[in-house]
Design a protein around this nucleic acid. Structure first.
Lengths: 261, 261
DNA sequence: GATCGTATTATTGTCAACAATCCGAGGGTC
DNA sequence: GACCCTCGGATTGTTGACAATAATACGATC
């Protein structure tokens, strides 16, 4: 047989599709932090029953993007300064690990090639003044970087963290102008990969994350003591422990507005 | 009010409880890799309907512990050598990041105290020749270590990785005798934390992981090129993409045997 | 006037039944 | 004998309805 590369026809499950759409909506700010996800509304918008929708939402709860309160509903997580710090700290760890795998696993050339494609899109978007596309390319750059490590687990974690990064940017109303300096930083990362400069690469990623957190939380640093979390995670660390003692919550802050695009 | 520390009464959702039980069953080998999770059987064992059970399973799919094949069922993931490598590589990254946070965030004393409690249990278990308890303590040690970082995200990831570590040990039929050397390694980690020796701590964690992977995959190393994954993760990296082209599968390898203990 | 108790209403949690799909067995045909 | 088609059984996917719970509004009481 000549044609050897044919992919299986398996479609994703309905829950996976819905989860992906919700993830995108959370990432781009259509579902801002704190919003309650009413099941009937969302089910109607997705034109499915509540069953598959609930399954999809349970995925996001496990992912840490939604917070579940029994008999009360599911809410998009709130992002406090401690969370922004946490997100960038964790991203730093994940991407540095991925970078190490790339350099020591002989994947540098392949990774650099894939990254340069994204980089070209980023440059084009910046040149034509399209911040949305530039931001997309930025996100994709880091996703491709981690994926190039070949680590399934790092890749999955990175995806969640990128969603949360998008939440931060959207929540803090930064238009996220991608300046030339930002493009230069990414270019430097690719160059370091191609040049085989491992320790330089790790430093570049570190300072890139440092820049990211400084842009969102002026005055904070990745390597400082970090902001005290208002609610320290329990040692058991239940995925959806609703450790919010009393919340003067309005019953519904904002219904799902544009989940299915 | 004098009493200030009263925890909220909120119970976890049913899906969370079931997911936790399934996770434990997967970790300790009651549900070995490849087993299909029949919905009706499991629902009967948990004495709930299929609805909440499916929600719980979707959580584990998102977590990467289960693999979903449309209209075919949910299966415990298979663990190939590449996965063992991936698990330990990722654990290394997570725990090193946690260790850095502990040292730089002024949490060393607190962390060392919590870890020594677990360490005492581990020593006692080894002394009385209880490998099960010793293995439990080992797992808990690392969970507490990461939790002490205060990072919610690192903690959540670590928990999944510890479940998978348990799978590896159970799958490879290692009785997981925790030798004195193993206890000594953990002790060294606590000492490094208490002594404020950050770079030593990172080295100790690294070699601890190295030992772990060598125990499971003799001949492999964390820092070598690593085993080639038989199926490289797609660049998109769908969480449950069933990229297994053709599988001469028996319809049901083993029904759920002891999920609820 | 403020607080407590009660009824209402909307939402979530759960369930059992229906529909769609897949696997395997059996029989027929070449 | 090998291959194809068809049928039966079983499992998953989805749905709509019912039960349980919590938030709100209203009225009674001190």
């Amino acid at each position: 047989m000549a044609l050897a590369e044919l992919q299986p026809v398996n479609r994703d499950s309905t829950a996976a599709i819905i989860a992906e759409q919700l993830r995108a909506a959370i990432m781009n700010g259509s579902l801002p932090p704190g919003t309650q996800l009413g099941e009937v509304d969302l089910a109607a918008k997705f034109q499915v029953s509540r069953g598959p929708l609930r399954e999809a939402m349970q995925r996001l709860v496990q992912e840490g993007l939604l917070r579940s309160e029994r008999h009360r509903g599911l809410f998009v997580i709130d992002l406090e300064p401690a969370d922004v710090f946490d997100i960038y700290t964790t991203r730093n760890a994940i991407e540095q690990a991925a970078a190490t795998l790339i350099m020591r696993g002989g994947r540098a050339e392949q990774a650099a090639g894939a990254l340069e494609e994204v980089l070209a899109e980023m440059r084009a978007a910046v040149r034509r003044g399209d911040p949305h596309a530039a931001s997309d390319a930025d996100s994709r750059f880091h996703e491709v970087l981690v994926a190039a490590s070949g680590s399934r687990r790092l890749t999955r974690m990175a995806r969640t963290l990128l969603t949360e990064t998008g939440m931060c940017i959207a929540a803090l109303q930064r238009t996220y102008e991608v300046p030339d300096a930002q493009v230069a930083e990414h270019t430097g990362i690719v160059d370091a990969i191609r040049g085989g400069r491992e320790s330089l690469l790790l430093k570049l990623i570190d300072s890139h994350m440092e820049d990211g957190i400084r842009r969102l939380l002026p005055g904070y640093s990745l390597h400082g003591p970090g902001p005290e979390p208002s609610e320290p995670p329990s040692s058991a660390g239940a995925a959806d422990a609703p450790a919010r003692p009393a919340r003067p919550r309005t019953r519904r802050r904002s219904a799902a507005r544009k989940p299915a695009g």
